[in-house]
Design a protein around this nucleic acid. Sequence first.
DNA 1: ACTGTTATGTTATAATGTAACATTTGTAGC
DNA 2: GCTACAAATGTTACATTATAACATAACAGT
Lengths: 166, 166
Amino acid sequence: MSKNKLLSPFKPASHKHQKCLQSAISVAKKHCEVEGLRLTPIRQRVLELVWQSHEPVKAYDILDELKRSKSSSAPPTVYRALDFLLEEGLVHKIESLNAYIGCGNPKDIHKGQFFICHDCGSVAELDDDEIRDLLQKKAKRFGFEINDEMVEIKGYCLECRELKNK
Amino acid sequence: MSKNKLLSPFKPASHKHQKCLQSAISVAKKHCEVEGLRLTPIRQRVLELVWQSHEPVKAYDILDELKRSKSSSAPPTVYRALDFLLEEGLVHKIESLNAYIGCGNPKDIHKGQFFICHDCGSVAELDDDEIRDLLQKKAKRFGFEINDEMVEIKGYCLECRELKNK
DNA sequence: ACTGTTATGTTATAATGTAACATTTGTAGC
DNA sequence: GCTACAAATGTTACATTATAACATAACAGT
Ligand SMILES: [Zn+2]
Ligand SMILES: [Zn+2]
Ligand SMILES: [Zn+2]
Ligand SMILES: [Zn+2]
């Protein structure tokens, strides 16, 4: 079955983000339970912080938050938690921003394609086999075997464009 | 006319790289002449260093080289030159590596698609409208207007795969 | 309880990139 | 050539992002 999903669409400012957050945590808990992994308090807290919004979050911003409740927190605290979450596909790194964002569909581990709005900073995540297949096809032409992919597209989301045209 | 070019294919280890380098410099000189821009000694030297190979080069490695001939060189020396070269499309930044690589076709300014070999580190650059159009099509579905794109694919090039299978 | 593994604490440092202001160099008009 | 302006470089300091290395603590199976 071919995937062609808009995993995380751009959300209207009015959406009930609490639900996104809760759902993400509950999916993560389930995932870790099934895989026999530990979603420790630190890891869960970092995941919650990444899911504070639909904008990519910086590691040191997470660190600043952690410090508020536990002043002993240090960079490794954050990076270790992020490494775990990345490894398990619960978050993605946006390489062009050095920032991290919650995955819209961690059930099925993948590298997404990201559309990032210059104005509002929001990100939509796609997991699209048509894109993947095309890249595959191109790679094949010169004997390249794909192992990892990064697709980050910047531009302007619908909402922001409509705002500007008013 | 639709572009579908393998701008910089993977090169055999045996290729005459001196030619790649010379050609890149001469194209850059021409470009700057036409545009009324100055390819100053620093800028040219940085471009040469970026073109030392077909592997992405790190800013601080460039800096180390610059220091060998001019010990007063500092980070801004490099980043300014890189900014100029990026601006003029003479080099690209590989975001997922924080590294820079010479552009295979600066005549026609673009964001390429990059295929990076995990083993040898070499990069092939594509400038392919089919990929661009597909991303465009996907973006359109949710009203996203593309302005900038980053496609960086990691894997194994033909040469390295053949080596492993021996 | 013993033991090996995993996770966290802690300190230090590496790697990447930018701000701000001074100085020099190039350019164009006079 | 002189002047004035703009572009490029020098210089110092600092900001941001990430990792190394080693110590301690928490956990899981026996
Ligand atoms: Zn939400
Ligand atoms: Zn995802
Ligand atoms: Zn070459
Ligand atoms: Zn290019």
